[in-house]
Design a protein around this nucleic acid. Sequence first.
DNA 1: AATTACCCTACCTATTTGGTAGGATATTTG
DNA 2: CAAATATCCTACCAAATAGGTAGGGTAATT
Lengths: 140, 140
Amino acid sequence: MLSQKAQYAFRALTHLVNKYNEGPVLISEISKKKRIPLKFLENILLQLKNAGVLESKKGKGGGYYIKSSPAKTTIASVIRIVDGPIALLPCVSLNFYERCKNCDERNCGLHNIMENVRDATLAVLEKRTLKDLATGREDL
Amino acid sequence: MLSQKAQYAFRALTHLVNKYNEGPVLISEISKKKRIPLKFLENILLQLKNAGVLESKKGKGGGYYIKSSPAKTTIASVIRIVDGPIALLPCVSLNFYERCKNCDERNCGLHNIMENVRDATLAVLEKRTLKDLATGREDL
DNA sequence: AATTACCCTACCTATTTGGTAGGATATTTG
DNA sequence: CAAATATCCTACCAAATAGGTAGGGTAATT
């Protein structure tokens, strides 16, 4: 399951997508509109900025906004930034690979199954982008 | 990611599949062969038994064994027993559904995406069974 | 210079995860 | 029946992670 943090991240990103091209949005606005604890949200947005998804502007009239086009950032990459691995086992993770100390990957039934799961999952998550989060209207 | 507990469960089940139809297997044997802490393994196997995956026999000559045919138990069901939900969000879980308090499911881009992920994941995990864990040889 | 608003470090609490201890219970065998 | 075997059950514990808070520092406007 996605962490609460990741869910907050997606809620915040949804807001930013809906306001794309309307200039920087205050953390406090996102916090209020989406009911996300302010200080917690602050470091989520910072993390997304450091990873290159968001850009920020300081001082009056500042805030956060989506760096490039929403269609350029995949849902998969957001999950990796906030929660880490998407795969169900370290030994089948593309971005966070770790060798299994207790199985021989070429002769492990589970390994094979989990590779299939990973591929099926990524087929969706790498295709969908921030653009797909847009709602058109301002729900909660 | 799957928990350590789930990974232990699959290692143990692999052993039991390989010994299918050879009678009950001692917890202590599985523990030794698969290097799983004995007491921890004990309650994993018990849980799988209570869920109807395994059967046990007490006293001398006792142990654990797979209840019905290995092909009857899906990988998905094992994950649900040991780790709980497979879906990435509670609001798209088939077996552990919980309403999202912060979004309208009909108008939530993320909800839709996560339904697709769930379907893609389950297409694999509901098709594969314990039978697919069999290795033929005794690794580790 | 004052204000605004993001940036950074540190900290705190509750829950979950991973694991252990010890005895109770049921079954088989002599 | 008694002894041995092996699962079953309850309780506990420590470390890690998740979720959240506090407070001041820094940069950019006006």
